[in-house]
């Protein structure tokens, strides 16, 4: 279970805004250590991060405000180091050390 490659982690920061912070302990910025690979041994990507956040970081039971049908809820923007994730390959983007991933909801607040 605890072999070297599995226990390796990537240090990243994850930010939530636009109302999403309320799902994550009302904290905007989280510094986390993300496992470097998923269970299948593939390098951690955004899809894996989203799953990881739902399992480990979310304090609110209303996961459906963050994910929908197994993907990020449409209407939530994802920025990878300030760039729209659509420019970075979306869920397939492989996370690098010290990346900043920002989730902004457009669904809240006028």
């Amino acid at each position: 279970m605890a072999d070297a490659s599995e226990s390796a982690t990537i240090p990243i920061t994850v930010d939530f805004s636009g109302g999403l912070e309320m799902l994550f302990d009302n904290k905007r910025r989280h510094s986390i250590s993300l496992p470097a690979t998923d269970v299948g041994g593939k390098p951690a990507n955004i899809a894996f991060l989203i799953d990881h956040l739902c399992r480990n970081l979310m304090k609110d039971p209303r996961a459906e405000l963050f994910v929908f049908d197994g993907h990020i809820r449409p209407g939530i923007l994802v920025l990878v180091n300030d760039a729209d994730w659509e420019l970075e390959g979306e869920e397939a983007y492989e996370i690098q050390p010290r990346d900043n991933i920002l989730f902004v909801s457009t669904l809240h607040g006028g």
Binding site: G18, L79, D82
Partner: peptide, 15 residues
Amino acid sequence: VLYAHHKKLDYFSTE
């Protein structure tokens, strides 16, 4: 939202 983000505007969001 991106405009507010990149211009670092001070806005408030809550349900």
